[in-house]
Nucleic acid binder design. Structure first.
Length: 501
DNA sequence: ATCGGCTCGCGCAA
DNA sequence: TGCGCGAAGCCGAT
């Protein structure tokens, strides 16, 4: 270990590693601890690579703690089920590799306090995930102060490290240019796709204190027994989804997308009836799937290698990747639109407020703050999908039932909330609440980009000046209905009573 | 069906 | 200083 320089000799790019505290590494401790909080997967994971690297250098076993608490904002059956599905998959993969994996689901608020510290007592150092959003940055900072050992946060969020640039971009165009300039070098430093294969690592023993005071998640919970979830003090008003979380489900969703949908992506993606969207966002949000894995799949289908990349980095939307148009359109979503959100959150703690909007949009919305609204709905009316607008109601019902809203309709959904709220600030609050509570990929940088876009972020002014919107880009249900194929969508999520309401 | 104007700010060329 | 251009729009003119 003496000659290992953790910065220059690591397989993980230094820009992805952040020392959260200045405590020492303890080479004589029992194991290396990976506290898995965002990249909840066993491959394509820089934090796991880093942890394995330390374990090998120090000749210690690796212990992985994947914890889920009950008192975090919006904890519900929906998100718990999704994360626990992932735990079951992770348990199997780590078991096969001979790594001590500790899935912990807190049975009551506060019960999990002290677990990380107790496990860290025997750790040479702790590695965790660096996620720039929600309560995670605060939680990691607090842990850094408490832990008696070195805590490193590793960024496995995207293909570009969140600190690849030194500031936030306020236009997608600028970020696209940065992606085009640097993709090749970052792609060359991708994480291991099968880090657990051919490992020979000794197994760690956890202290009796830990095993008795914080028993790992029960087989009932991991196995998906509804009673086990019902017993937890979480929001039972947000029901589980019809699709599973976890790595297996992520892989099959990806395969479906690549085999059946990618080819028609560009043409069909705006049409709700065409079912052309990837459905990958929930898996990306909870770290069950990596952008690297998706790109590898696209590259294979497109027979693509980085040599095909264009040399001009001018921020143009086509002609850079040199893939088929549909694949290029999807790459733009994945690399530019997903990662520009990560970039924003990484540099702005204030990523979701009205004050974070561009000056021009704050100004125009404020100027039209007192304009008459066609109708004002309460949050509860919106939540229950009870408006006069069938398209909006359908989108809201899709959110309630499926934990997502179709890409195109999500924009209209947000714009209408602005139209029906007494102030833009209230509208923003309501939109974020609904998305955070019900969307599987809520509480994600990506989601905040999408919502704040409706209020002007990453966008520009569009005339003519209209009531309420001012020069914010306007969208209407009438035009949406004319432009899109959505009859089946309306039938599926239409104004008929359902179990939820 | 397609086109320009509506309207704002940024980077870049000059 | 001027020019070109940008997530998905809308509307009226041709």
């Amino acid at each position: 270990m003496a000659r290992f320089n953790a910065v220059t000799d690591s397989v993980v790019p230094a820009v992805r590693v952040r020392a959260v505290n200045q405590r020492a590494l303890r080479a004589n401790a029992k194991y290396v601890l990976y506290w898995m909080i965002a990249a909840r997967r066993t491959h394509d994971n820089y934090a796991l690579d880093r942890a394995l690297e330390y374990a090998k250098r120090l000749q210690k076993p690796l212990v992985v703690l994947e914890a889920l608490r009950v008192a975090y904002p919006y904890a519900s059956d929906r998100f718990h089920r999704f994360v626990i599905d992932g735990m079951a998959d992770n348990a199997e993969a780590f078991q096969k590799a001979g790594i001590t994996y500790y899935p912990y689901v807190e049975p009551e608020a506060g019960a999990g306090s002290g677990l990380l510290e107790a496990l860290a007592k025997d750790a040479a150092l702790v590695i965790t995930d660096d996620f720039p959003c929600f309560f995670l940055p605060r939680m990691v900072a607090a842990a850094g102060k408490k832990l008696p050992v070195l805590l490193e946060a590793v960024d496995s969020n995207g293909v570009l490290p969140i600190r690849a640039l030194d500031k936030a971009c306020f236009r997608a165009f600028d970020f696209r240019r940065a992606v085009q300039k640097t993709f090749a070098e970052h792609w060359a430093e991708r994480p291991a796709s099968a880090p657990l294969s051919r490992l020979s690592m000794s197994k760690a023993t956890l202290s009796r204190e830990v095993r008795e005071r914080w028993p790992s998640a029960s087989a009932d919970l991991l196995g998906g027994k509804p009673e086990a979830l019902a017993a937890l003090p979480i929001d039972h008003g947000v029901p589980v989804l019809s699709y599973r979380g976890g790595l297996r489900a992520a892989r099959s969703t990806l395969t479906q997308f690549l085999d059946k949908k990618l080819e028609r992506y560009e043409e069909d993606r705006n049409h709700p009836d065409k079912a052309a969207t990837s459905g990958l966002s929930p898996y990306l949000h909870f770290g069950h799937l990596s952008a690297h894995r998706i790109i590898a799949g696209i590259a294979e289908r497109e027979d693509w290698t980085p040599e095909a990349l264009g040399t001009r980095a001018r921020g143009e939307r086509t002609g850079f990747w040199n893939m088929r148009p549909s694949a290029e359109a999807f790459m733009d979503q994945l690399l530019v639109w997903r990662e520009v959100g990560l970039n924003y959150c990484a540099f702005n703690r204030d990523y979701s407020s009205f004050a974070s909007l561009p000056t021009w949009s704050q100004k125009t919305l404020t100027e039209h703050k007192t304009d008459a609204r066609p109708k004002l709905y309460t949050r509860a009316e919106l939540e229950a999908a009870r408006t006069y607008d069938p398209i909006w109601n359908a989108a809201q019902r899709e959110l309630l039932r499926e934990g997502r809203i179709h890409n195109y309709l999500r924009m209209l959904w947000g714009k209408k909330i602005l139209e029906w709220s007494k102030t833009p600030e209230h509208a923003l609050q309501t939109t974020i609440y609904l998305n955070d509570r019900y969307a599987v990929d809520g509480r994600d940088p990506n989601s905040y980009s999408g919502i704040l876009w409706c209020f002007g972020r990453y966008d520009r002014a569009w005339g003519p000046v209209r009531p309420i919107f001012g020069t914010i880009r306007y969208m209407s249900s009438e035009n949406t209905e004319k432009k899109l194929w959505l009859a089946q969508y309306l039938a599926r999520y239409g104004d008929q009573p359902t179990l939820l309401e």
